[in-house]
Simulated assay, not measured.
Amino acid sequence: MKFFMLVTVLTYIWLPMAQAEETPLLPTIKVMAESELREEVGFIPFQQDKTVRKVLQHKIMKNEQDIQNFVVDGSIREIDYQPIAAKPDMSQLSPALQQYVLAVATGLQSSDPTTGLFTMLKQFGIDRSNVDGMRSGTVKLNLDPNLLQQLKDNNWQIK
């Protein structure tokens, strides 16, 4: 019985030792220069898969033919990207005020929109020569009472 116990104990001690010696090695990543990699792997020529190449060529040709054979639906006649703006009705304005509004609008639509702004400010004595004084806040405005009365007569709101 003692012998059997001794063999059992030795077996239990030896068994884990035998298993510990047989651990598998895991793959590792090794940093190599290109020349070292070529030495280890060797030269591998490029191998092109001909069936994949034919399938890709066929798909490209089909896409090109689809683009070339595209047909526009005949039901679409005309597309308006920007609607035509309605012309303003200035018949209720006096002829002088109509000319003034057209001069301001023409100035604003020109290549230099400040022309329209200075046309508006001309009534208040502001032009290109004294605009620098306005930036510093030193310009005085002298309002013409006739202009104010004309604006009131044409239903302009003055505050």
Rank of each mutant, 00 (worst) to 15 (best):
E78H: 07
I126G: 03
T51M: 11
A86N: 07
V139R: 04
K62H: 11
Q82N: 14
L102E: 15
I76D: 01
T115P: 02
S111D: 09
K87S: 08
K152I: 06
D80A: 09
Q157L: 08
Q123D: 15
I60V: 13
N130P: 05
V139L: 10
L121I: 00
K62L: 15
L93K: 06
Q150D: 10
S91C: 01
L143M: 15
L147H: 09
T114C: 04
A86P: 02
N130D: 00
V71R: 12
K140I: 10
D127C: 03
N142K: 14
D144M: 07
L151H: 05
D73Y: 00
D73N: 08
S110I: 06
K54S: 07
L141H: 04
N142T: 15
G137A: 12
D66R: 09
G107Y: 00
P88E: 10
I84K: 13
Q109D: 11
Q123W: 11
M61S: 08
T106C: 02
I126F: 01
Q82W: 06
A85G: 07
K59D: 11
S75A: 10
T138V: 12
G137L: 06
P83F: 08
I67F: 11
E78G: 04
N155A: 09
H58Y: 02
N146R: 13
L148Y: 05
N63Q: 15
T115H: 04
K122M: 06
D153A: 12
L97S: 13
T119P: 01
N142Y: 11
L97T: 15
V104N: 00
A85K: 08
Q157M: 10
Q82V: 15
K62P: 02
Q98D: 00
D112G: 04
T106R: 05
I76R: 05
Y81P: 02
L143S: 10
D153G: 06
D112V: 12
V71D: 02
L108G: 04
I79L: 10
Q99M: 10
M120I: 10
S91Q: 08
A96T: 14
L102P: 05
L56G: 01
T138S: 14
S136P: 01
K87W: 00
Q68M: 08
K140L: 14
V52C: 03
Q98I: 05
N69G: 08
I76S: 04
Q98M: 06
Q150E: 13
M61G: 01
N69A: 12
N63T: 13
D89R: 11
K122F: 08
V101L: 09
P95D: 08
S91I: 03
I76P: 03
W156M: 09
